[in-house]
């Protein structure tokens, strides 16, 4: 599988899935050989709590902008197929 864009068949997708797993497994194997690893997470923040305050008023055209690119909509609603995620 190359890098140039192409429409992918189901067979291509299976091959890509195997490639991705192979790469991640090999990368994980290399990293697991490092002996001394820190315990903490990677980002130090002095202040990680945001002051919420009274909040901003949404702009009047916010709804219009949110719906503008929806492929299927009905006035104020985006229409999506039921159980489409399954």
């Amino acid at each position: 599988m190359g890098f140039l864009y192409k429409k992918l068949s189901e067979k291509d997708k299976e091959e890509i899935k195997k490639e991705a797993k192979r790469i991640m497994d090999s990368f994980g194997k290399k990293l697991s050989k490092i002996k001394e690893l820190p315990k903490e997470g990677s980002i130090k923040r002095e202040n990680s709590i945001r002051e919420e305050g009274p909040g901003k008023d949404g702009s009047p055209d916010f709804k219009k902008r949110i719906l503008e690119n929806a492929p299927n909509k009905n006035k104020d609603f985006i229409i999506a197929e039921k159980k489409g995620w399954e």
């Binding site: 190359g2 864009y5 291509d12 890509i16 899935k17 490639e19 991705a20 797993k21 991640m24």
Partner: peptide
């Protein structure tokens, strides 16, 4: 395309 799908499926894995 292939590289985007690789990253999506790799991330899912």
């Amino acid at each position: 395309g292939p590289e985007v799908l690789r990253r999506v499926l790799g991330g899912a894995e």
